[in-house]
Amino acid sequence: MVLLRQLPESATEEGSFWPIDGHTMVGWKRLENVQACVETILAEGIEGDLLEAGVWRGGVAIFMKALLYAYGEDMRRVIVADSFAGFPNPRLEDREDRHWTVKNSAAEAFMSVSEEEVRDNFSRYGLLDDKVVFLKGFFHETLPNAPIEKLALLRADADMYRSTMDILESLYDKLSPGGFCIIDDYAMSSCKAAVDEFRKRRKISEPLMVIDWTGRYWRKGQT
C-alpha cells in the first residue's frame, strides 16, 4: 500500500492505496461488487441486514446505506462493526498473526478511526438514522451475541487471521441463503488462511469469486 494524494487510474480501480482524505480505501471494483450484491439482494428479496466488520472511515457502510436509500428500502439495517481503536493484540496460539507488524505502528494510528468520526461521515451524507447500528468493540467481544437475526450481506475487512475468523464464526450462520459473503483482505496471508480454513471446515463449495487483487466473495448456497 502507498499513501498518495494524486492517484493513477489503476490505483482507484483496484483500491491499492491509503487515501489521505477519502472515506474508504476500497477501489471502484470493490464498490461495484457491493452495489451488485445489494441490488441482487433487493431484487430477489434476500432476507436480512447488511453488515460490515472493519469499517475505517465508514465509506463502504455509507455506500450500502446510500444504496438502500436510493431504492427506497427503509426496513433493513446497516450494521457498522469496529473496535474504533485499532487492532487487537495478536494471540500467541494463532501462528498466522504472530508476526503482525501493524500493531502499535504509525499505520495502525492512521487506520484507527473513532466512532464519532464515522457517525459524522454518515451525517455528512444525510444518512445517519436509527437503521444505522454501531457495534463498538473487538469482534470476539461484540459479534457472538450481537442483536442480529439475519444478514443478507456480510462484509469482512479485518486483515488479521483471528479477527477474520471471529467474524465468520460468529456471523456466517446468520447469513441467509442467497446472501453474500465478501472478503476484503484475501491478498493478506493472515486473512486468506482464515477464509480458506473456515470454508474447508464448513465444507463451503460455492466458488470464491475474484473482485480485484485482494477482494473475494461468494454467494451462500440456497438450502
Rank of each mutant, 00 (worst) to 15 (best):
L4N: 12
P8R: 14
P8L: 15
E9R: 12
G15H: 08
F17C: 14
F17G: 14
W18T: 13
I20L: 13
H23F: 15
H23S: 13
W28N: 13
R30W: 05
E32L: 13
E32Q: 08
E32N: 14
N33T: 15
V34S: 08
V34R: 06
Q35N: 10
Q35W: 04
A36Q: 11
V38G: 04
V38F: 07
E39V: 07
I41N: 05
L42R: 08
A43W: 04
G45L: 03
E47H: 08
L50C: 08
E52M: 04
E52A: 00
V55R: 09
V55G: 03
W56G: 00
W56H: 03
W56I: 02
R57L: 03
R57S: 01
G59D: 08
V60R: 06
V60F: 10
A61I: 11
A61F: 09
I62M: 04
I62G: 01
I62K: 00
M64Q: 15
K65P: 03
K65H: 03
L67P: 08
L68C: 03
A70T: 06
R76F: 01
V78R: 02
V78S: 01
A81G: 11
A81L: 04
D82R: 00
D82A: 01
S83H: 11
F84L: 06
A85G: 14
G86D: 02
P88S: 13
E93W: 12
E93H: 15
D94P: 04
D94W: 09
D97I: 03
R98M: 11
W100Q: 12
T101Q: 13
T101P: 05
T101L: 09
N104L: 09
E108N: 06
E108K: 08
A109M: 12
S112L: 15
S114A: 13
S114T: 15
E117I: 12
R119W: 10
R119I: 05
Y125M: 07
Y125G: 14
Y125W: 14
D129W: 01
K131S: 02
V132F: 00
V132M: 05
V132W: 01
V133T: 13
L135C: 07
L135Y: 09
F139I: 07
H140V: 03
T142S: 13
L143F: 05
I148E: 06
E149N: 09
K150P: 09
L151V: 12
A152N: 13
A152Y: 08
L153G: 00
L153P: 10
L154D: 02
L154V: 05
A158H: 00
D159S: 02
D159L: 03
Y161C: 03
R162Q: 15
D166P: 07
L168D: 00
S170Y: 07
L171A: 00
Y172H: 13
Y172S: 11
G178L: 05
G178D: 11
G178K: 07
C181S: 05
C181N: 05
I182C: 09
I182F: 05
D184C: 09
D184G: 02
D184S: 12
D185E: 06
A194P: 05
F198N: 01
R199A: 00
K203R: 15
K203G: 09
I204H: 02
S205D: 11
S205Y: 12
S205M: 06
E206T: 13
P207W: 06
P207E: 08
L208S: 03
G215F: 05
R216A: 00
R216F: 07
R216S: 01
W218S: 01
W218F: 15
Q222M: 10
